[in-house]
Amino acid sequence: MCSYITEKAPIFGSAKGRNGWMRVDTAVVYYDHPVHVPLDHALNIDFVDSRSKERVAVELSAASARELVRRIQAALDSGDAIHLGSGEEDPLHLARAM
Protein backbone atom coordinates (compact mmCIF):
# COMPACT_ATOMS: atom_id res chain seq x y z
CA MET A 1 0.00 0.00 0.00
CA CYS A 2 2.83 2.36 0.88
CA SER A 3 0.50 4.76 2.62
CA TYR A 4 0.80 6.71 5.84
CA ILE A 5 -2.47 5.30 7.20
CA THR A 6 -1.95 4.35 10.83
CA GLU A 7 -3.85 3.64 14.00
CA LYS A 8 -2.39 5.12 17.17
CA ALA A 9 -3.27 4.01 20.66
CA PRO A 10 -2.22 5.62 23.94
CA ILE A 11 -0.82 2.89 26.19
CA PHE A 12 0.81 2.54 29.58
CA GLY A 13 3.54 -0.06 29.68
CA SER A 14 7.17 -1.00 29.19
CA ALA A 15 9.08 -2.67 26.41
CA LYS A 16 12.61 -3.97 26.10
CA GLY A 17 14.53 -2.33 23.28
CA ARG A 18 18.13 -2.03 22.17
CA ASN A 19 19.06 -0.05 25.29
CA GLY A 20 17.14 -2.18 27.78
CA TRP A 21 13.75 -1.58 29.33
CA MET A 22 11.87 1.61 28.65
CA ARG A 23 8.44 3.08 29.22
CA VAL A 24 6.21 3.11 26.16
CA ASP A 25 3.24 5.42 25.81
CA THR A 26 2.04 4.93 22.23
CA ALA A 27 1.33 1.96 20.00
CA VAL A 28 1.42 2.73 16.28
CA VAL A 29 -0.37 0.07 14.23
CA TYR A 30 -0.46 -0.18 10.45
CA TYR A 31 -0.94 -2.74 7.70
CA ASP A 32 1.65 -2.06 5.02
CA HIS A 33 5.04 -3.10 3.73
CA PRO A 34 7.24 -4.55 6.47
CA VAL A 35 10.98 -4.02 6.70
CA HIS A 36 12.10 -7.48 7.78
CA VAL A 37 9.48 -10.24 7.74
CA PRO A 38 9.43 -11.87 4.27
CA LEU A 39 5.95 -10.72 3.27
CA ASP A 40 4.71 -8.06 0.88
CA HIS A 41 2.34 -6.73 3.54
CA ALA A 42 2.22 -7.23 7.29
CA LEU A 43 0.50 -5.98 10.41
CA ASN A 44 3.16 -3.81 11.99
CA ILE A 45 3.19 -2.51 15.54
CA ASP A 46 5.61 0.04 16.94
CA PHE A 47 5.64 0.39 20.73
CA VAL A 48 6.99 3.91 21.15
CA ASP A 49 8.41 6.05 23.93
CA SER A 50 7.38 9.46 22.60
CA ARG A 51 9.97 11.24 24.73
CA SER A 52 13.06 9.40 23.51
CA LYS A 53 11.47 8.40 20.14
CA GLU A 54 12.78 4.89 20.73
CA ARG A 55 10.58 2.02 19.58
CA VAL A 56 10.20 -1.71 19.73
CA ALA A 57 8.90 -2.95 16.40
CA VAL A 58 6.96 -6.10 15.55
CA GLU A 59 5.93 -7.27 12.07
CA LEU A 60 3.32 -10.05 11.85
CA SER A 61 1.46 -11.86 9.11
CA ALA A 62 -2.24 -10.98 9.02
CA ALA A 63 -3.29 -14.41 10.33
CA SER A 64 -0.68 -14.18 13.09
CA ALA A 65 -1.98 -10.77 14.13
CA ARG A 66 -5.57 -11.98 14.25
CA GLU A 67 -4.53 -14.99 16.31
CA LEU A 68 -2.60 -12.69 18.64
CA VAL A 69 -5.68 -10.48 19.06
CA ARG A 70 -7.69 -13.55 20.10
CA ARG A 71 -5.00 -14.72 22.52
CA ILE A 72 -4.62 -11.29 24.07
CA GLN A 73 -8.37 -11.13 24.59
CA ALA A 74 -8.38 -14.63 26.10
CA ALA A 75 -5.51 -13.77 28.43
CA LEU A 76 -7.22 -10.56 29.52
CA ASP A 77 -10.50 -12.38 30.14
CA SER A 78 -8.85 -15.01 32.33
CA GLY A 79 -6.83 -12.31 34.11
CA ASP A 80 -9.98 -10.32 34.80
CA ALA A 81 -11.65 -13.43 36.19
CA ILE A 82 -8.83 -13.96 38.66
CA HIS A 83 -7.85 -10.42 39.57
CA LEU A 84 -11.11 -8.47 39.20
CA GLY A 85 -11.76 -6.53 42.35
CA SER A 86 -8.11 -6.54 43.43
CA GLY A 87 -8.31 -2.77 43.66
CA GLU A 88 -5.48 -2.18 41.20
CA GLU A 89 -6.38 0.71 38.94
CA ASP A 90 -5.01 0.78 35.41
CA PRO A 91 -2.69 3.81 35.07
CA LEU A 92 -4.03 4.37 31.58
CA HIS A 93 -7.53 4.85 33.03
CA LEU A 94 -6.16 7.13 35.74
CA ALA A 95 -4.35 9.23 33.16
CA ARG A 96 -7.53 9.57 31.11
CA ALA A 97 -9.52 10.59 34.17
CA MET A 98 -7.09 13.40 34.99
Partner: peptide, 10 residues
Amino acid sequence: PDDIGARARA
Protein backbone atom coordinates in the same frame (compact mmCIF):
# COMPACT_ATOMS: atom_id res chain seq x y z
CA PRO B 1 16.36 4.38 8.24
CA ASP B 2 13.57 2.02 9.32
CA ASP B 3 13.28 3.73 12.72
CA ILE B 4 13.17 7.16 11.11
CA GLY B 5 10.65 5.86 8.58
CA ALA B 6 8.49 4.63 11.46
CA ARG B 7 8.66 8.07 13.07
CA ALA B 8 7.64 9.70 9.80
CA ARG B 9 4.73 7.31 9.42
CA ALA B 10 3.52 7.92 12.97
